[in-house]
């Protein structure tokens, strides 16, 4: 049973709306928790996630949809949350990096990034993890080429991607192993 949490008051980071702007009510499930909030129609989903819900693991790196640091999963699809308005997420189910670990256990993708040194400064990491997670839900047995193509919408300036690709391939193997155990 997911916890219910209401957010009635926006943090002041969100702009005081001009008097004519209509606030829109949205209901969104994020990491299994149902939220309901009134948002300014121009508010981007990434700002809703960071500023209203306080889930700051989702980062902003570019403002133009290029870097992918803001990648989240919305209704099973990987999206760049800076390219979507919060109102478009009304009724949607969203997964962010904070929802990847379950019951204190790292998700295999997180575990693999940690063990394979798949990060340096860490800023692109949450977006990279979400994209890798989505990629593996679509293709549980990717080739290296699949992984590289699948991550090419996410920029990393530190690593050179080699360790990231290794981590995703290792996570894929780990997850296939887990699948077999279940069967």
């Amino acid at each position: 049973m997911p916890r219910k949490k209401r957010v009635d008051r926006r943090k002041p980071r969100a702009k005081a709306a001009p008097p004519t702007a209509q606030l829109a009510k949205i209901n969104v499930k994020v990491n299994g928790v149902q939220y309901s909030a009134e948002v300014e129609p121009r508010m981007l989903l990434v700002h809703f996630i960071r500023d209203v819900l306080g889930l700051t693991g989702t980062h902003v790196g570019c403002d133009t949809g290029n870097c992918g640091a803001c990648t989240v999963i919305m209704d099973g699809k990987s999206v760049k949350s800076c390219n979507i308005f919060a109102v478009q997420a009304d009724g949607a189910e969203i997964l962010t990096v904070e929802g990847l670990a379950r019951d204190g256990e790292l998700h295999p993708v997180q575990q693999a990034f940690w063990e394979h040194h798949g990060l340096q400064c860490g800023f692109c990491t949450p977006g990279m993890l979400m994209q890798a997670y989505w990629l593996l839900t679509q293709n549980p047995s990717p080739t290296e080429e699949d992984v590289r193509r699948g991550l090419s919408g996410n920029l990393c300036r530190c690593t050179g991607y080699q360790k990231i690709v290794e981590a995703v391939l290792a996570a894929a193997e780990q997850m296939r192993g887990q699948q077999q155990e279940v069967r």
């Binding site: 990847l100 860490g122 993890l129």
Partner: peptide, 12 residues
Amino acid sequence: SRVDALDAVLGR
């Protein structure tokens, strides 16, 4: 391992 890598993968 990098000393603060765990915080980064958890999105803390």
